[in-house]
Amino acid sequence: MAILSNVFLHLHPVAVRKSGIRLSFTWCMGGLTFFIFLVEVVTGVLLMFYYRPTVEYAYFDIEGLRAHVTLGLLREMHRWGAHAMVISIWLHMLRVFLTGSYKPPREFNWSIGVILLVLTLLLSFTGYLLPWDQLAMWAITVGSNMARATPLIGHEGPLASFVMIGDVPLVHAGDDARFGLLAGTFVGPNALLRFYVLHCVFIPVVVTVLIAVHFWRIRKDGGISGPL
C-alpha cells in the first residue's frame, strides 16, 4: 500500500484542484491515451515472443497466432488498441485546445504533446506493415511513396535535380528519402526489418521518455489548468 501510493504520488501531487479532475473537463482522454499505451506495450511484448520479422515467417507467424491461440485476443487487442490510441490522442488534443490549456505557462508542454502525436501516428504506421499481408504492404507503399516527392531529397521531388556535385546528380531512387525510410527501393525484407526495429524499440522508447517529460511538465506548470 505504501509502495503503491508512492508510485501514484510520483505521477500526482498529494492534492489536485477539484475542477481539474472533473470528468467533463478533461474527458480523461490524456489518461486513457496513457493507459492504452501501456496496454500496447504489454500486448506488444507478448506478440514479440511469437513474431519473427522476416519475409519467410512474418505472415505465417501472425496466421499461426490467429489459428492456434485460444481466443487470440492478443493481436486483436494490440491492433484495436492502436486505433483507439490514435482516436483518444486526437480527442485529448481537442480538449486541450478547447480549454485553452496550451496558453501560458503550458506552451512547452503542448509542443511536447504535438511531438507525441506525430510519434503515435508513426508508431501506428510502422506497426501496420508487420503482418506482411496485402493490406500492410500496399498501405505502406502508398504512404512511403510520399517520401519520394520530398523537395530536394526525394528523387521525384521538386528541385532534386539541382542537387549535384559538379555534374553528378546526387539524388536517385537508390539514395533518396524514401530509400532511407524503406532501406530499399520498394517495400521488401529490409523495410520489414527496419519498421520492426522502429516499431518495437526506437519509437516506443522515445515516446516513453516524452510521456515522462509530459507528465513532469504538467506538475511543473501547476497541475491541470483552470481559470486563473
Binding site: I36, R66, D133
Partner: peptide
C-alpha cells in the same frame, strides 16, 4: 477493448505480393 477484440477479428489478407496491387490501394 476486450469486447472489441472478442467481437471483431483483426484483419489478415493474402500474404504480401509485390506483383499484385490492390485497387484502390489505401494508406492506413
Amino acid at each position: 477493448l476486450i469486447v472489441w477484440a472478442v467481437v471483431l477479428r483483426a484483419p489478415l489478407e493474402q500474404p504480401a505480393d509485390p506483383s499484385v496491387a490492390p485497387n484502390p490501394a489505401k494508406a492506413p
